[in-house]
Amino acid sequence: MTMDTIDTIDQELIYAIQDGLPLVSHPYQTIATQLGLTEQQVVTRLNRLKQQGFIKRFGIVVHHKELGYKANGMVVWDIPDQQVDNIGQMLANFPYITLCYRRPRRLPLWPYNLFCMIHGKNQAQVLNYLEQLKQQENLSQFHCQILFSQRRFKQRGARFSLKKTNEMQYV
C-alpha cells in the first residue's frame, strides 16, 4: 500500500488555485503556463488530488445566506458515550443535516457531546426538521439544544501559503 503524498509541484498547484480558478475558456492551461506545466499535467494532478482526498470538492462554493438559507441551527445533544457513534452516523444520513461531529463535553457549562448543523430557509423550517428527527428516531429521551446563529462576523475559506521549505503551511 502506498501512502498518499504530495510533491512540490502539487503544493505549488494547491497554492496557485486556492483563491479559485481563472474564469477563462482554458483555465487549466492558464494555471499550467504559470507553473511551467502542460495543461494535461495540471488536469491529471488535480484528478489525483481529488481522488486522494486532498481536494474534498472541486466546484463552486456558495454563500448559504445569500441563497436564502438564512437560518443555521447548531443542534447539540448529550448522548451516552456508548451510543454516540451509532446516533451520529444515523443523523448524518438525513439530508438536512450538513455536519455531524462528536466533540468533548465541557462540564458543568457544556454537557453536549454530539454536534450537528441543520440549515434551513428560516428558523421555523430548522425547528421542524429537528422535531421530525426527534420523533422518527426516538431522540426525545436525550437532552438537546439548538443554537441559532444570530450574527456572522467572519466567514472565509482555508488559506494556504508556501513556506521557504516548500512545506505546505495552513494559515
Binding site: L49, V61, V62, G157, F160, M168
Partner: peptide
C-alpha cells in the same frame, strides 16, 4: 454579487497538515 464565495477547490486542510 457575493452569492458564490469561491470558484475552485475545497481542500482537506487536515490532510494537508493543518488543523
Amino acid at each position: 454579487q457575493g452569492i458564490l464565495t469561491r470558484f475552485g477547490p475545497l481542500y482537506n486542510a487536515e490532510k494537508l497538515g493543518g488543523a
